[in-house]
């Protein structure tokens, strides 16, 4: 665990620029819990050596740019962690770690759960 902590502490999160996660008063801002989970998943995978940070960062910058352009052209408003998610999925598929098809399947399964399934458990 200590070595993983050291590795994740070395993940060079951009403090500024197109790849930088949103902050408020310097703290990372997650508008919803899923954004934090996504962030944590990415850094955990990186910490365990599944990819170099720059491989993720390149994809993130491209995904941010695409979504910025779409938003400027009147599309959906830009949301940083949507770009992050797209970049991570793309990278996981490229590395053969998790494919888009199985993600789609799992997402449909979860969506099919009855409402209130996670209450009182």
């Amino acid at each position: 665990m200590a070595s993983q902590g050291a590795r994740t502490a070395a993940a060079p999160l951009d403090l500024a620029g197109p790849a930088a996660p949103p902050r408020r008063n310097g703290e990372l801002v997650f508008e919803a819990p899923w954004e934090g989970r996504l962030f944590g998943l990415t850094l955990t995978l990186h910490g365990q050596g599944h990819f170099e940070w720059e491989e993720f960062r390149e994809r993130l910058i491209r995904a941010v740019a695409r979504r910025e352009r779409a938003a400027a052209a009147g599309g959906a408003p830009f949301r940083y962690y949507e770009a992050w998610r797209a970049a991570l999925e793309d990278l996981l598929a490229a590395k053969g770690l998790c494919g888009t098809a199985e993600l789609d399947t799992r997402e449909r399964q979860l969506a099919a759960r009855p409402p209130g399934h996670d209450h009182g458990s």
């Binding site: 989970r37 998943l41 995978l45 365990q48 991570l88 998790c98």
Partner: peptide, 25 residues
Amino acid sequence: LRTEALESLLVEKGLVASEAVDAIL
């Protein structure tokens, strides 16, 4: 849902532990 799908798959494949994600956050 998408993120939950992602995390659950990665845990099942043995690639991450949810506790590790908690610690990073």
